[in-house]
Computed example of a mutant assay.
Amino acid sequence: MAATIIDVARLCGYSKATVSRAYASPEAVSEKAREKIYAAAKQLNYAPNAIARAMVRQQTENIAFIIHEKQYPAILNPFYSPMLEAAMQEGTRRNYSLFVTTSQDIHLPNGDIYIKKHMDGVIFAGEVDIRVIEEFRKQSIPVVLVNNYLDMDGLVCISADHYGGAVQATEYLCKLGHCKIGLLSGRFSPQVSEARIEGFVKTLAKYDIPVDDRFIADIEPALEDGEEIMTRMLREVDRPTAFFCTNDTIAAGAMKAVTRAGLRVPEDIAIIGFDDSYISRVVEPELTTVRIDAAKMGCLAMQTLFDLIAGMPVEKAHIQIPTELIVRGTA
């Protein structure tokens, strides 16, 4: 049977309360007492519980992974699930637990953030309120922002080259000879959405292709929304021959609408997505898309956060992951 705190108290001659204080608040116990208590604990092979260890080390061994409620649950999100899995694996490797929640659910009814004292560090994924970041930083809790960028002093941001990815996708369609290209743009954080739209618009301008506002849609990044808007656009006589969708889920919905309209992908309508999530490989034909290494982002976010927790300097405040066009069957 494992030794208890009572066994340690009996062996060293101090009270149970003093033994507990030696682990929870060692500065409140004399050096002589601490030495006897720790020696007794070692002799009995006694290990304090996780809470006591955390109090001694001033660390909880907990990391919060906070995602915007629109993207929750992260484990089922095509883009964020590999990022979360990589973060969990890196945490497990270092004996840390990952607490996954939403930016909405971390607030108490009075508006306070209830997890501030229970986390050694925080990863925010996607959209986030600057005020929430500031609340954690006021408590000297390290924060890393992933898949977003905010110009805040000392905030480490890990994002992808969204602009470059949009340029690659749009340019590929232009080089295939498409002269009328539509855009189905998902509502993400401003940094993500604006960069992808800008890449699309500037590339069309480079190839002297006009932007037709009738075929640019601002929608929720969901399968149903992609299908619904594409169904409406397909009714137009002068519809585009290609569409750039700013995530794979929207693209899958668009493909569904094309098929149900009796048309073919890519012969009648070419479609390109963004993310290279698992969705791109389960649709038929397989989806041409822009790849973001979400797993690498999750791993890098955790590694950077651990550096911050350890008080190590971080060389770059903004780390950008490159994107890559993956050509498959839809364009």
Rank of each mutant, 00 (worst) to 15 (best):
M1I: 15
I6F: 09
C12K: 14
G13Q: 15
V19Y: 02
A24F: 06
K32T: 13
K32C: 08
A33V: 12
E35S: 09
K42Q: 10
P48S: 12
N49I: 14
A50M: 15
V56E: 14
F65M: 04
I66V: 08
I66N: 00
A74V: 08
Y80V: 03
P82Q: 01
A87Y: 03
T92W: 11
R94C: 05
R94L: 11
D105W: 08
P109R: 08
D112N: 13
I113L: 13
I113N: 09
K117G: 06
M119P: 01
E127K: 15
I130P: 06
S140D: 15
N147C: 01
G154N: 11
V156L: 05
H162R: 09
A169W: 01
S185H: 10
R196W: 02
R196H: 06
V201E: 15
L204Y: 00
R214M: 08
A217E: 12
E224R: 13
R232M: 14
R232L: 14
L234M: 08
L234R: 05
R235H: 09
F243C: 06
K256P: 04
L263M: 11
I272L: 10
D276I: 09
I279C: 02
S280P: 05
L287T: 07
T288P: 00
V290L: 09
M297C: 03
M297Q: 06
L300W: 01
Q320E: 11
L325P: 03
R328I: 11
G329E: 05
A331E: 07
